[in-house]
Design a protein around this nucleic acid. Structure first.
Length: 129
DNA sequence: CGCGTGACTTGTA
DNA sequence: TTACAAGCCACGC
């Protein structure tokens, strides 16, 4: 068991996006909680909205740590619209993720991919000042 | 402090 | 369209 539960590194978050009291992982969770039912976001988007544009990998890591909690981790896909978890890894949660998405009405294409143009969630229009 | 690794992304061929 | 390389950041050794 790798101790991924602890991830307390705090850094300055951009104002107006998220409260400054959140830890790195919690900031990801906060963004992921924005995703409504039947929608998805990419790791990169979550990272960007959390104020860490280059920490997409950490998002997945954070998700593993929170799996089982109230964070809709299954609504996070990679930039290609597919589940990043390899079948069999992490207790075969790849299957669980897919089932959860499908139960929300998210359809997978023949390539096991989701049409991001259709299901990608944009939290809000890019701040027009 | 350096090196390898990872539920990633983007650019190039 | 797929395949490969580079960039990225935090963690463990």
């Amino acid at each position: 068991m790798r101790s991924v539960e602890k991830a307390p590194s705090r850094r300055a978050l951009p104002k107006g996006v998220l409260p400054p009291d959140l830890t790195e992982y919690e900031s990801y969770y906060a963004v992921i909680r924005w995703i409504p039912r039947g929608r998805v976001m990419t790791y990169g988007d979550v990272a960007r909205w959390a104020g860490r544009p280059n920490s997409a990998r950490r998002v997945g890591y954070a998700l593993f740590a929170v799996k089982g909690s109230s964070v809709p981790w299954w609504r996070v896909l990679n930039a290609r619209g597919e589940i990043s978890v390899r079948p069999g890894a992490f207790g075969d949660c790849e299957t669980e993720q897919r089932l959860r998405l499908q139960s929300e009405g998210v359809e997978f294409g023949p390539d096991d991919r989701v049409d991001l143009d259709r299901y990608l969630y944009r939290p809000r229009p890019r701040r027009a000042g």
